[in-house]
């Protein structure tokens, strides 16, 4: 029976309050929007490795500081590079650093967090204080300090992003394992002949991954902003390279020529939004 066929039905608390049936919204729009947006960004970034309207970093493909037009969709910057091509090409850098950084933080944080949560004791206490210290610094400030200490470059930025991110995963994994540890299936697993580590990694951790995955998506949107902020400050990725943050930095003194900063800014916003929507969608599924 479908909802439209039952308009005679009265609905409400215990069927006492008559109400009209409305079709229930079943599509999870955040999931689809998140998937669509991130799919689009990734496709464009990969495509940019093979084709862009102009060579992205080549100066003088047009006049300097041309407003958006049919020839240059997003205009040109002060050395006459095509901003549209550059925004396309920069996608891989930003998305790549974000994803690899998040993956590293996820693995390291989850591993340490589940071990300390499971075994507890002094190591657990020390690790917890350590993560509190890391998290008590403003992330961007700590990121700047670390990058200036270890120097710039792609790999260093990835590592720094992972260091900034892993305490979040660690604490979440630890909390999840702590709550799963007292479940009876953990006891059952011991009786089934599992050693402690296999109880942890075969039973507790797989049942704790869902919140970690949704956290990582939301965390990725934050990481995307940190990555471009480091680029904006001019440390990390070398200035002038195709990276959205450093593109905005390059347009800092060009306020009247809005397109120089506007389009890379929109790109960052879209990337952060894509991850955020995904995270939101995962979190919703978890509740159901």
């Amino acid at each position: 029976m479908t909802s439209t066929a039952t308009n005679a039905v009265q609905r409400g608390r215990g069927g006492i309050r008559p109400l009209n049936i409305k079709p229930r919204r079943t599509m999870n729009w955040t999931l689809w929007a998140g998937l669509g947006l991130s799919g689009l960004l990734v496709t464009v970034s990969i495509a940019a490795q093979f084709w862009t309207p102009y060579t992205p970093t080549k100066p003088g493909v047009g006049d300097p500081l041309m407003a958006p037009s049919a020839a240059h969709l997003f205009g040109t910057d002060k050395v006459g590079s095509d901003i549209f091509s550059k925004v396309m090409a920069a996608g891989l850098t930003d998305i790549g650093i974000t994803l690899i950084g998040v993956a590293l933080a996820f693995v390291i944080g989850t591993l340490i967090g589940s071990l300390t949560g499971f075994f507890g004791g002094a190591v657990d206490a020390i690790v917890m204080r350590g993560t509190e210290i890391i998290q008590s610094f403003p992330a961007l400030l700590l990121g700047m300090l670390l990058v200036s200490a270890v120097g710039g470059g792609l790999i260093n930025v990835v590592v720094v992003v992972a260091i900034l991110g892993f305490p979040g995963y660690l604490r979440l994994a630890r909390a999840e394992i702590l709550s799963k540890k007292s479940m009876e299936y953990a006891d059952a697993a011991v009786l089934m002949g599992n050693g402690r580590l296999s109880v942890l990694f075969k039973h507790l951790l797989p049942n704790s991954l869902k919140p970690l995955v949704s956290f990582s998506a939301i965390n990725a949107s934050w990481v995307a902003i940190i990555v471009s902020s480091l680029g904006f400050i001019g440390i990390g990725i070398e200035p002038g390279s195709a990276e959205w943050g450093s593109m905005i930095a390059a347009g800092r003194d060009q306020i009247s020529n809005w397109w120089v900063t506007f389009f890379p800014g929109v790109a960052i916003l879209l990337l952060a939004m894509a991850f955020y929507l995904l995270g939101d969608a995962f979190a919703d599924r978890e509740v159901q």
Binding site: E184, A188, L191, N207
Partner: peptide
């Protein structure tokens, strides 16, 4: 543990 086993009260909580 091979010699002594346990059937739990709550089958929901005791099965992974």
């Amino acid at each position: 543990h091979r010699r002594v086993q346990l059937v739990f009260q709550d089958p929901n909580g005791s099965l992974d």
